[in-house]
């Protein structure tokens, strides 16, 4: 199962947090910053999987007594992908396929790209409701329910119109240079494992 889906930017500012189990806000923030530290220290050409952040590693080793089966309930995999200025993180248990998760992130980003037409970080900043809606069409309660692009996009559109980024907040403009096209930065065809 998927335990959490996170998006934050290169400065570690969260853009989307979704935890599929209830967690204290302060612990959420600690987890995010621990993962950010891990992610920002990755050398180029490293794999898309992170070692468990201390918070998770500590809690998963504290019950070593639990059986191998119960290990399936414990988050054991942190997958990330970096698009332009953003990091997408999936924390999951061992029942998910690691390569498929890389794809899942790709699907999510492509869906956003579809919805926003050439998505950039600004779109995500100002439309975080849409981010949630899109994720809600793909994952419910930690279980993946849809991976088909058309259906995801249709599902989000059915919930209302997707607002484009504010006109005066032009791409790369006022906002401090955060904007950068995800679509362009990502090389959408790049490294995909074709779970789809």
């Amino acid at each position: 199962m998927i335990n959490a889906f996170l998006v934050f930017n290169g400065q570690g500012q969260p853009r989307l947090t979704k935890f599929y189990t209830q967690l204290d806000t302060s612990i959420q923030q600690r987890l995010i910053s621990e993962i950010f530290t891990l992610v920002s220290n990755r050398a180029a050409g490293s794999c898309n999987f992170l070692p468990l952040p201390p918070l998770l590693a500590a809690s998963s080793t504290s019950n070593t007594s639990s059986s191998a089966q119960e290990q399936n309930d414990v988050p054991s995999l942190v997958t990330y992908r970096n698009y332009a200025t953003l990091y997408f993180i999936v924390i999951s248990t061992s029942t998910e396929s690691p390569l498929a998760l890389i794809d899942l992130i790709q699907v999510y980003v492509e869906a956003l790209d579809r919805l926003f037409e050439n998505v950039c970080e600004l779109d995500l900043i100002f439309n975080f409701e849409t981010l949630h809606a899109t994720l809600g069409e793909m994952i419910v309660g930690g279980v993946v329910i849809e991976t088909n692009m058309e259906r995801i996009v249709a599902g989000v559109r059915a919930q209302g119109t997707v607002v484009k980024r504010p006109v005066n907040e032009g791409r790369g403009g006022g906002g401090g240079g955060l904007a950068g096209s995800l679509g362009a930065g990502l090389g959408m065809g790049g490294m995909v494992w074709h779970g789809r």
Binding site: M1, N3, A4, F19, Y20, T21, L23, D24, S26, I27, R30, L31, P54, L55, L56, A58, S59, S60, S62, N63, D73, V74, P75, I91, T93, G142
Partner: peptide, 21 residues
């Protein structure tokens, strides 16, 4: 090391963070 809030720490001992039961 997990000295967060007392309640959270207690919870952690029983169950891993983010764990589904």
């Amino acid at each position: 090391k997990l000295t967060t809030t007392a309640a959270a720490a207690k919870k952690l001992k029983q169950q891993s963070l983010l764990q589904f039961t």
